[in-house]
Design a protein around this nucleic acid. Structure first.
Lengths: 159, 159
DNA sequence: CGGTGATATGATATACTGTATCAAATGTCC
DNA sequence: GGACATTTGATACAGTATATCATATCACCG
């Protein structure tokens, strides 16, 4: 994850989002596009007020509402995930999937990069483990903290 | 979970906490005890500022710091869990366990009651699912939203 | 086209959540 | 009973998020 063409990540995410909006008749406005682009500038989670600071050079009148509205839209469309344990947001890297709630976020405590992974077997095991309490699960938030491969091998290269 | 002697829950939790503090040489001060008691007044998650309002009749000079310090202590001791998706706190009902991080919280969207359950198999499955990404997991937050048994059977009795 | 209703943005205020800091009080232990 | 650590008091402020009303833009249809 450390050695990749990150510009491609960004372009790909934006293109994918644009396509999805077309299909759904949703409006991928300049603000929404810019916020998504800013979020994708790294694989770390972006905080709302950091995004606000970073969008101001492009949108001088931006306020918290500007950001939170865009974030809400991007979440509704499944373009980003909220990282609950960080009060922050990260780009969704599995936009092609339907069950985007059945994922887990792997959060590296060393480099802060976040990897999204589908967790179908884990979710199935969860349903088994709650079966005898007769709880009907509808959605789940799964956030795992630890050390990513890169950081386990060598000191965190660049943050 | 709806039909139980809840006074017993509270007394049991307080007694258990007191015992643990004794063993560890930690101080179970009146403030800490009161906050834990208030949290245990229901099986729903308690918000910090609600706790503040509710402690004021007993501690007129209480401030946010009063609450947050007590919450920090109770968390450190493993007496409560933070519910990340709610910014709220709930009593820990498995104080006897050591691996108190390997749990999941089942949150009923109807009655808001929260059940804590150990999730050993789920955690093991998680480790399997992340093995090929060479991610080393250290701790996890798992919060499941859905419908509890009581609410599936009959309309939410009392909130 | 031009109107009309829905959607998006601007602008302001405010609510909610959580932490920093320094001083005073209390407990612990020799 | 004095020294040190822990807890609490008190004040300020940082960080996160939403409510609300006004204005602008878009989509669609007549």
């Amino acid at each position: 994850m450390n050695t990749h063409n990150h510009d491609h990540c960004i372009e790909s995410a934006l293109a994918h989002a644009e396509k999805r909006c077309m299909e759904r008749g949703a409006r991928f406005t300049p603000i929404r596009r810019k916020v998504l682009q800013l979020i994708w500038e790294s694989h770390q989670a972006a905080k709302a007020y950091d995004l606000l600071d970073r969008i101001k050079p492009f949108d001088r009148g931006a306020t918290p509402m500007t950001i939170y509205r865009a974030l809400q839209f991007l979440q509704d469309q499944g373009f980003i995930h909220r990282v609950e344990t960080l009060n922050a947001f990260v780009g969704c890297s599995h936009m092609e999937h339907q069950h985007q709630h059945e994922i887990m976020l792997l959060i590296c405590e060393s480099c802060q990069q976040i990897e999204e992974r589908p967790a179908p077997n884990m979710i199935e095991m969860m349903h088994e483990e709650i079966a005898n309490s007769s709880f009907h699960a509808r959605r789940s938030t799964i956030e795992i903290y630890g050390t990513c491969h890169s950081c386990a091998v060598l000191p965190p290269a660049s943050v």
